[in-house]
Design a protein around this nucleic acid. Sequence first.
DNA 1: AGTGTAGGCCAACACGTGTTGACATGCCGG
DNA 2: CCGGCATGTCAACACGTGTTGGCCTACACT
Lengths: 189, 189
Amino acid sequence: MTSEQVRPRSAETRARILATARDHFSRHGYDRTTIRRIAADAEIDPSMVMRYFGNKERLFAAAAEFELRLPDLSALPPERVGAALVEHFVERWDGDDTLMALLRRGATDPAAADRMREVFAGQLVPVIAALHTDPAEAASRAALAASQILGVALCRYVLCFPPVVDMPKRELVAWVGPTVQRYLTAPHP
Amino acid sequence: MTSEQVRPRSAETRARILATARDHFSRHGYDRTTIRRIAADAEIDPSMVMRYFGNKERLFAAAAEFELRLPDLSALPPERVGAALVEHFVERWDGDDTLMALLRRGATDPAAADRMREVFAGQLVPVIAALHTDPAEAASRAALAASQILGVALCRYVLCFPPVVDMPKRELVAWVGPTVQRYLTAPHP
DNA sequence: AGTGTAGGCCAACACGTGTTGACATGCCGG
DNA sequence: CCGGCATGTCAACACGTGTTGGCCTACACT
């Protein structure tokens, strides 16, 4: 019934709206992003945005659709997993606004926080559980790793603390990698 | 001219507004907090909020006024500084909404992010610089420590990742303390 | 008692928002 | 040539917001 064929004409417009929306959401957060502004920057009428996506909420949902695309950690040498994870995330953030949009909104909106918990539980925990036997412990370790990784994202991409922003990727990984490594593999203190 | 004496009658009302504002700002962030709602919860007219604080921006400023009140780390045994810092912050957060209000807003509002950078540079860096000789290095180390500490705050108080929320304070300090310790004192990798 | 003043309330304004429905335009199949 | 449909525009609605100014009330002081 609501099955959508790709309309050739609209595909480009839709994509342009989506790209603009992603940009605005990630830059200014959900509340401060207005449909009118997205429409203006996409050079289209606000009502078109509504036509394509129904409402602001669904537009955000479409813009925030993403996968962490985590590597399979259990295939790596065990002493490399920390650095690999950190490296993966830093590259992910540099190349895609989407994560930042969700992070920004998660700070304010309970629904987005919910979604981040889902991503955490559905995508991060399993990968880390593959390294360990006890699932409860895996969740704790994953959460600690997340705290450090999200903390870096916050300081580097959102709050823009100069020392973290200026730090080259390699140095960042050299500092933070061992932390995550310890959270994932060190014995429970 | 605009010099304000404390009016005995109003002091209580003003305090009630401020407390309610702090609560709302920390819970919902700046944008989703409305003056009308603060006024309603403080059982007062919205216009009174304006009378006392001028505008929403200044109300937030008054509500977000705070000091980290960091301990003097250089007075501690050097191998204790990491755990001490983490402990201090966890207790600080449990007892005071203000930090969380600023964190929430910092995720969305550049002005608040600015302010967090000020707090970071003005309050955290100096304390950490007291441990080290090279000031540039002190800033990097402080930023790394901040990334971990703010990451915990984010996961525990804002995003509410269950494993971090449920983790007892002692265990949290046992895990995170050594991380911060390493950032502050370990040789540059 | 009369009066000034601080504390408080009410109603309204101006504005920006998400959202909607009526109307235009150009393309494509018959 | 014409009718339908996708694509897009325009103008408006309903609502919630921060903010303002006028009015009321009660108390302190002379």
